[in-house]
Design a binder for these strands. Structure first.
Lengths: 328, 328
DNA sequence: TGGTACTATAAGTAAAACTTATGTTATCAC
DNA sequence: GTGATAACATAAGTTTTACTTATAGTACCA
């Protein structure tokens, strides 16, 4: 018997949830057409295997502990997913690709979500596109909860992936247009003394990159307000009159009015962000390549909006991948 | 033995995946420290219970059938979620953090992110606002990675929380304006036959609620395209000419042009969504109450936009909480 | 203070999961 | 083709698990 065995199976979760819903083990037993000791034993075994008490014995209307409540949430989600599977497999028999799941980094939602949805809808029977942080999508890709990922991280530390670069964009300053443009990195500290710096959370790849870059520049800027979405950062800068280190795509993503704000070049060494499409190697054939091409075509259409947003000087750093690079 | 039993348990899925990964049943057996017949029997039993062949016997490097491939995707997702559960429960027991962090459901980003950031920035030395799904925020709240949560779930199965209702809004149909308005629930099936139904993913509370509602109405609508953000759903409907079951706030959140689309009442019994502010009980004093009041004030400002979007008839269901309800 | 309705434990039984043993089939080297 | 090899399937026996009945213990209510 392997040591990393799961501490429960679906049957025991089913019984646990029945107890939660019914309010007592005896009632749950009736509902499941079992005897009461069966339920009692199953719950006890579940608690023993997880190693945490799930119910508060000694309180008569049986009460959940904190851990019990958490399990209730997750278990019901897990079971409802499990119940969907079998019917879907029957449909999967006569289908193209049965299911295609993609993770799209937040900052490309507005640029790519709808066209990508159309494309995936053509290529698969069922398509699912999730938004969020690249970090969480990366985990999902590896555990096969996702099949494709478009994000700001090329996951080069992970084997067995194929990578299709999409575009490169510069980091920029988003700040009040009236203020003087910082010329040297040190001017950023001065700016931060006058205005609140709005940051990306360190949960996001972008936030981590910015943090690392500032450390390289030996700048220790305050950390007052942070967000994990481009909208949060941009909207907060617009509302509060602060400033942020962000990228053109992140600003476009937010789709908020930028009255009185301007994009300025970030002083100091070049600092860019790369967006990449990633899939597990050799599982989807030429599909990732085709989708990457499709994304590039759509992203190229943004060049004009970029120009308007940041001016020609900065926009030159914006670059959609042209040559179709072979996956590493 | 009840008839609606699941056709598999986690153990059999584990074995099935081991076979997929190892490439043969014998190799999988070695890896699982079992004998070959154990695996063979488990796979056979799994196929019998699901009622579909998963592998292509007779092809020697064992090949997956279409259904087998689909099961592989979903089963590995299911298992990786299952494996996360136990460790999370252990964390749920303790942990404590000083900093003020809030989780805001995606559909309120546009409405509340910036003002909430300003407010929290006043009240705390450092504030962090994360966007995403209520479900993941709920876990973060329990494990004390978040201190506040604004979401579409009141987590009533969890003890030890205080809840501050913010507003109630109706679910509505977002569909082409030119098409006739569905009068009865059954008309939805007809609509779904003509147009693609764009769904919220079951990962989101909104998606789960819609799914449950449809099940109550005994409607089995196709599942072609799904998203976990309001922007995804709205943009896809706008781009593809499909339809969706969504809410006014979700539509406003997306901030996309709705040319040719209209909001229609959802036929059938009343179906509304409740947004609530949640905190762990008695940990932040009167702060949650104050923030809830602040949020309501801001949300009340949306009433006009609601009217324009959905018309008076539907908008009547939109209701910002007035009385400050004592936490349960 | 019993009565009721629940939970826990003990011991036995039915079902399942797994094992060894053996037969069958596809692939490959010759 | 032919036999060797490595895989899968099936049969029969064994261990483990899940469930049952029976009984004792515990919180709650009148």
């Amino acid at each position: 018997m392997p040591a990393d065995t799961l501490p429960f199976d679906l049957r025991s979760l089913e019984m646990f949830l029945a107890v939660c819903d019914a309010g007592s083990m005896a009632a749950a037993a009736r509902r499941l057409a079992l005897t009461q000791p069966a339920v009692s034993q199953a719950v006890a075994e579940l608690e023993r295997r997880i190693g945490i008490a799930l119910f508060d014995r000694g309180a008569r209307p049986l009460a959940l502990t904190a851990a019990g409540g958490a399990l209730r949430q997750r278990a019901s989600a897990l079971l409802s997913e499990a119940r969907q599977i079998a019917p879907l497999l029957r449909e999967a028999e006569h289908a193209r690709l049965p299911l295609l799941r993609a993770g799209l980094v937040d900052s490309l939602s507005r640029a790519l979500m709808a066209p990508l949805a159309g494309k995936l809808g053509e290529m698969a029977e069922q398509a699912s596109i999730l938004s969020g942080l690249t970090a969480s999508h990366a985990g999902a890709l590896l555990t096969r909860q996702l099949d494709l990922l478009v994000g700001a991280d090329d996951l080069d530390e992970i084997e067995g992936l194929e990578r299709w670069p999409l575009l490169t964009e510069p980091y920029v300053l988003l700040m009040p247009a009236a203020l003087p443009v910082p010329a040297r990195p040190a001017d950023l500290a001065q700016l931060a003394a006058a205005l609140p710096l709005v940051r990306f959370s360190a949960r996001s790849k972008t936030g981590m990159e910015v943090e690392r870059h500032l450390r390289r520049l030996r700048l220790d800027l305050p950390r007052r307000l942070e967000f994990d979405t481009p909208y949060g950062v941009t909207a907060s800068v617009a509302a509060s009159g602060g400033f942020a280190i962000t990228t053109p795509l992140c600003i476009l993503e937010a789709a908020v009015a930028l009255d009185g704000l301007a994009c300025r070049p970030l002083p100091g060494p070049a600092f860019t962000r790369h967006l990449t499409l990633i899939a597990r190697r050799q599982e989807l054939g030429r599909l990732p390549r085709e989708i990457a091409g499709f994304c590039r075509t759509h992203l190229a259409g943004l060049a004009e909006a970029f120009d308007r947003l940041v001016g020609h000087e900065i926009a030159a750093t914006f670059q959609v991948e042209g040559a179709e690079v072979q996956p590493a």
